[in-house]
Simulated scan of single mutants.
Amino acid sequence: MGPITAMEESIRKEHQNNCHLFLSFQKFLAEQHFDWLRLMISSDRKSLIGKGILDVNGKNYEILISYSPFNKFRYDRIYINDYKIKFHRDIHLYYDLSLCLYHPLIDQIAFKKINLFEMIPWISEWIVFYEQWKKYGVWLGKEIKH
């Protein structure tokens, strides 16, 4: 394990050891910026769980969020509750249908995890690019090919 990986793991362990405080802070920040989102801390799942309706260009999307330092690889799992959205490698979804909003190695600043409130605006961007992809067959947003 290299020094950067060790530091990253140290940050994750700190967040895990102080899980309730860390999640409370994430909840506070998100609620200050996004009144459409309802969040609660799930002690048994050690996660911040959220749900809300996001209006993008006059269309409503139900958003489901799970955010936890115990999630593997990245803290966030953000979903659009829409049975019509199917996995396709061109539309930036993980196999579990959670949104791929950033590259966990390239877009994340070293020694800093991305706060939930920083990610939430990216959901709207993802939706806009998804709607364009349905129309044109090409992902028009910035991307790093997987």
Score class of each variant (00 low, 15 high):
residue 41 I to V: 13
residue 114 I to F: 03
residue 102 Y to N: 05
residue 114 I to S: 02
residue 85 I to E: 04
residue 87 F to D: 07
residue 38 R to L: 09
residue 11 I to W: 05
residue 132 Q to E: 14
residue 29 L to R: 10
residue 15 H to I: 00
residue 79 Y to M: 09
residue 146 H to E: 08
residue 89 R to G: 12
residue 36 W to Y: 06
residue 37 L to W: 01
residue 48 L to S: 04
residue 22 F to S: 06
residue 16 Q to C: 12
residue 49 I to H: 03
residue 80 I to F: 05
residue 67 Y to F: 15
residue 127 I to C: 05
residue 54 L to H: 08
residue 15 H to S: 09
residue 47 S to P: 05
residue 34 F to M: 00
residue 97 L to A: 01
residue 74 R to S: 13
residue 142 K to S: 13
residue 87 F to K: 07
residue 75 Y to T: 05
residue 119 M to N: 09
residue 95 Y to L: 14
residue 93 L to G: 14
residue 7 M to I: 15
residue 118 E to T: 10
residue 50 G to H: 05
residue 76 D to G: 00
residue 42 S to N: 15
residue 124 S to R: 12
residue 71 N to V: 05
residue 82 D to G: 04
residue 101 L to M: 09
residue 130 Y to Q: 06
residue 141 G to H: 00
residue 6 A to L: 14
residue 99 L to H: 04
residue 41 I to G: 00
residue 33 H to Y: 09
residue 19 C to L: 06
residue 55 D to C: 09
residue 122 W to K: 15
residue 44 D to C: 10
residue 11 I to K: 04
residue 23 L to S: 04
residue 73 F to G: 04
residue 4 I to G: 04
residue 20 H to D: 09
residue 3 P to V: 10
residue 74 R to D: 05
residue 78 I to W: 00
residue 26 Q to C: 11
residue 50 G to N: 05
residue 141 G to S: 02
residue 69 P to D: 03
residue 4 I to K: 07
residue 85 I to T: 08
residue 119 M to C: 08
residue 99 L to G: 06
residue 17 N to S: 12
residue 132 Q to K: 09
residue 20 H to T: 13
residue 127 I to D: 01
residue 91 I to A: 00
residue 93 L to K: 11
residue 4 I to H: 03
residue 140 L to E: 10
residue 22 F to L: 01
residue 43 S to D: 14
residue 85 I to L: 08
residue 15 H to D: 13
residue 121 P to N: 01
residue 111 F to N: 15
residue 18 N to R: 03
residue 61 Y to E: 02
residue 134 K to M: 08
residue 101 L to N: 07
residue 75 Y to D: 01
residue 50 G to D: 02
residue 99 L to W: 03
residue 35 D to N: 14
residue 135 K to W: 02
residue 33 H to T: 01
residue 130 Y to A: 07
residue 12 R to K: 13
residue 33 H to F: 07
residue 60 N to P: 06
residue 89 R to P: 15
residue 138 V to Y: 06
residue 146 H to G: 07
residue 139 W to T: 05
residue 92 H to N: 06
residue 38 R to G: 01
residue 109 I to S: 09
residue 122 W to V: 04
residue 44 D to Q: 10
residue 4 I to M: 01
residue 136 Y to V: 11
residue 18 N to I: 07
residue 63 I to R: 03
residue 138 V to E: 10
residue 12 R to W: 00
residue 68 S to Y: 02
residue 72 K to F: 12
